[in-house]
Amino acid sequence: MSGHPLLEIKDLYVQFNVYGGALKVLDGVNIEVHPGEKVGLVGETGAGKTTTMKAVLHVLPEPAAQITGGEILFDGQDILKMVPSQLKQIRGKGIAMIFQDPTLALNPVFTVGEQMSAVVQYSMEAGRNLTKREVRERSITTLKEVSLADPERLLGNYPIQLSGGMRQRICIAMALAARPKLLIADEPGTSLDVTIQDQVLRLLDELVEKRNTAIILITHSLGVVRERTDRVYVMYAGNIVENAPTTQLYSRSFHPYTQGLMAAVPKLTGGGVSDGIPGRMPAYLNPPQGCRFSPRCPRVMEICRGEKPMLREASPGHQVACFLYPRGNELEINTKWNVSSGG
């Protein structure tokens, strides 16, 4: 990609301080998104995908969550150093997020209209206050854009009166109300049944395509990102282990974890990717020394247990964090995965 990136996450460290100690979840995350680019973020449950994206919007639950290192640059400015008035310019208009579970992402005691109008009101260019009528009209237009029928009635409804698919669409509508330059979609539709999930994804494709919005699409499923992204980041236990242009990643992946994911894909009968790879993700309270994947890795070496592999270019535009690939020495290594289809 040419030009300077829209979003640049540099070496991000996040921990959660809980009763028994600190959960060191994000362990140096690096992600870059260029204007209009479609990026996929793939990883099994608990990998830290949502945590990364909440950090980007500076909405991690404080004081439990603590950002212990790194930078998040949006248009060259560090979000982590912003004062509230600067954040206000970024949120909604610059970056918007569709949260993972639409049932949890909507406030249960306010009507759709009350929530929409708060969003619509502040989605406007600075300095102009909308009248009540204008807010209502804009809310209705926004709901129509996500193909919701009878938006007038919806405005008076509470979230519990709506189906999962409707809630998901409302979340999408709210995220797109301010016409963001970057949309973060956290597993859109995962909580819905497959046909509705498909509709939601297609709706999202359409809206994003029309406005040339950059998007970070988070998912468990390699199938979903393959069809609709330019570049894929693979995340494991708070690390980006590999990133590459989508076609390249599918034709040739380097990291043993990614290879495991790929091997698991055709055999998956639904469910999480972790089904395919033996073992479990490590606990964040005492993460393994060195490479966090080492306890599960079939190609583990001595060095992996002592030292953390850095992301480096394995081939042009294709980065991997693995000691199997020393700098400038491109090897073709194919991990033999003995993948069970799980369950």
């Binding site: 909440k54 919007l57 909405v59 991690l60 639950p61 206000k88 949120r91 909604g92 208009k93 970056i95 918007a96 997020m97 949260f99 992402a105 909507l106 406030n107 929530q115 708060a118 969003v119 502040y122 989605s123 979340c171 709210m174 995220a175 109300a177 301010a178």
Partner: peptide, 8 residues
């Protein structure tokens, strides 16, 4: 988090 993230 969602309400904050949307700029309210």
């Amino acid at each position: 988090a969602a309400e904050r993230a949307l700029g309210i």
